[in-house]
Design a protein around this nucleic acid. Sequence first.
DNA 1: AACACGTGATAATACGCTTTATCAATTGAT
DNA 2: ATCAATTGATAAAGCGTATTATCACGTGTT
Lengths: 353, 353
Amino acid sequence: MSAFHIRRPRLIDVAQRAGVSSATASLVLNNRVTGNVRIPPETQQRVLAAAEELGYVADPVAQSLARGRNGLLGVFTFEAIFPVTHRDFYYPFLVGIERAAEMLGFDLLLFTSTSVGDGRRRIYRDGRNRLRLADGAILLGVEESKTEVQALVQEGYPFVFVGRRELEGCEISYVAADYAAATAELIERMVNVGHLRIAYVGAEQFTESLLDRRRGYRDGLAASGCAVDDSLLCLCTGQRMVAPQLQTLLDQGVTAVVTESGPIAYSLLQACNELMLDIPGDLSVGLMGDPFGDMENVGHLSGFSIPREEMGAQAVHLLTRLLDTKTPATSQQASLPCKPVAGSTIAPPRTRP
Amino acid sequence: MSAFHIRRPRLIDVAQRAGVSSATASLVLNNRVTGNVRIPPETQQRVLAAAEELGYVADPVAQSLARGRNGLLGVFTFEAIFPVTHRDFYYPFLVGIERAAEMLGFDLLLFTSTSVGDGRRRIYRDGRNRLRLADGAILLGVEESKTEVQALVQEGYPFVFVGRRELEGCEISYVAADYAAATAELIERMVNVGHLRIAYVGAEQFTESLLDRRRGYRDGLAASGCAVDDSLLCLCTGQRMVAPQLQTLLDQGVTAVVTESGPIAYSLLQACNELMLDIPGDLSVGLMGDPFGDMENVGHLSGFSIPREEMGAQAVHLLTRLLDTKTPATSQQASLPCKPVAGSTIAPPRTRP
DNA sequence: AACACGTGATAATACGCTTTATCAATTGAT
DNA sequence: ATCAATTGATAAAGCGTATTATCACGTGTT
C-alpha cells in the first residue's frame, strides 16, 4: 500500500504497454475491429492483456464526450421521488423503469440536485439544463412546469413523459394509461347492472389524465345509451367530497358514483357513513385508479388499476427508440390499457325504475 | 419550427457573439473573474447577454472531463433496488440518500446496467468499473461480493458502504447501525422485567450486522449479570424457526426470545400458535430490527428500529467528505444508534423463579 | 526617453477517448 | 519486374469546456 496516489491508467498507458498506438488500443477494447480496420488476433491479445494487467477502465466521461452519448437515462421528477407521501405513487413506475433500464443496459441518473426548497424541482438551474448530463430523460410528476417542458422541446432534448402531456404547438412523447377507455368500461359495467344516473366526483384540477377520465365518463354514458347530464359531473375542492354534496347527488336520482382518486373515494365513503348509506346496496362506487397511500382501507373498491410498472418500462423503451432515431423530431405516444378491478362495490341499484 | 436539427450552442458560439475568446466566455460564465483574471463589467455583460440570447447551456460531460469531477454520486446495490421483495429494505435508505444528495446539490447515479441475469449485480463489467462514471459511490446490498469490493479499494475509488463491512487487510468506509448496543439494550430490558433464560434465534448466516447482534446478545447478558449459555443461541435454516425447535428452547427454561429478522419473528409467532403459547404471557419476544415486507402483521413487536433513513443520509455526507479530502486513503466509519421500540411483546415471565 | 506597472484579455494546453482517412508494407497476379 | 490489392495499423482531428501562463497595450513616473 503506497502512500502516493497512483493515477489510474489511461488508454495511452495500455497502448504503450502493448506497443501499439492509442487508436489501436481503443479499437480493440471497443470491438471495433471490423471492415476497414484490421488488427490481427495476436496484437489484439497483447492489448487485452495489457489492459488486464494494468486494470484499465475507460473513463466513461471521456467516452461520453467523444461518442456524444453516455448510456445514461435521466429520471426527473418534479417532486422528490422517495419521500413517503409520494411513495406509492412513484414506486411502481420506478420498478418498471429500473427493470427496463437493466434489460437494455442503461444506468439511471436521478436528478436530485435541482431542488428549489419548496419541494418542487426545476429542470433548469442557473439557466443550465442539468438533464443534458444524460442522453435522454424520463419525466414524471404531477405538477410539472409547462414552461420548462416547453424549453426542453425547444432545445431538442429527447425525453418521454410518463402520463399524457399536451403542449400547445408541439407534440411531445409520452407513455400514458388509457384512462378514457378504462373509465368508459367502468361506466358500462355500472350501466350493465342497471344504473342510469351515474355521478362523477373529481377534483377541481384539469390535468390531462383527469380530462381523459372525464371524456371516458361521457363516452361511456353515450356508448351505453345513457343521457349525459353534466350536473352529475361534480368537481369538489381539496380532494374531499362532503356529505351535503353527496346528498345533492342522491336527490338527483344518482345510484352510482365514479371517483377520480383514492382520497376522493375515501372522503366519499366517509360521507356515506354519515348519511347511513350502504355500499353497494344504496350506492355503487367505482374508483378510476388505484387506492393511494394510507387509503388502502377503503376496501375492495371496484374500478380499474393503472399499469404503472408497465408504463415505466414502456417509457424507457420508447426513450431508447427515440435516441436511436437520427431525427429527434419524431415524437411518439403510447397508450396502455388499464386492468379492470371487479371489487365489491358495484351492485344493481335497489329500486329499478 | 425548422425542419433542421439545430445544434445546441456551444461555448464558442457565445464567445463569438460577444466578440471575445472562449476563454473569456468560460471565465465569465463560471464566475472565475478574480485575481489575475480581469474582465471589465461591460464585457461581462456582453457575454452574459450573448449566452442568454442563444440559450446557452454548458455541456456537463465536457465540464466533467475538464474539471475532473462531475457532481455525481453513484448508488450501487448488489441486488435490484426496486423490486417489491426488496422494497421495504432499500426504500428508507434511498429516502435518506436522496434527501442528503438534494441538500448537498449532487445528482444520483443508479447503476442498473450491470445485471448478470441471476438477479445479482456486478461492479465490474467486461473488467470495466462502471462506477467511475460517478465521483464516488454509496454501496448497499445484502450479498455483496468481497472480491469486487477489494478491487474497488485497490483502484482507490472512493466509496461508502451502508452497513458495517470488514475486509481483510484494508479498512473501508461505512455508516452502520449500532446493532450490538441496541441488542444489549433489548436484552437488558428483558432481564429488567425478570427474564433469566433468553434465547437468540437467528439465521445460518454470518454477515457483519448479524455478528454484531450476536455480540450484543452476549454483552447484554453479561452486563445484566446473566449467564451466557451458547446452547440458547440458535441458528436455524431458511429464516424459519419450526415448532419443535421452539419446544426444545422452552424445555431448557427459556422465557424470552430475541429474533434476528422479521421473517424469523414471523415463523416464531407461527410456532407459538402451533404450541398454543400466549405472547407475551408464556413467552416474551423481541425483534432486533424492523418488521419486513409482508410481515407487518406480526403486530407491535418489542425491539428496536434501524435508523435506515439516517444511515443513507450520513453515508452521503461521509462520501462527500471523502471526496473533498485530497488523500483518498483515509477511510472513516460512523455508527448510528438504533431506536428502542417498546412494543407489546415483552412482559414479566409467568413463573418467577 | 526609459521604465515599471496595472489592465484586459487570450493562446495554448489539458482532459481521455473515438473515429476516419490515410499510408507503408506485404502479397499476389501478369 | 511492375502494378494492384490486401493487410496492419496509425496520425490527426475532433468532442466542449477549464485554466494558466503570457502578452500587448496604455498610463503614469522619474
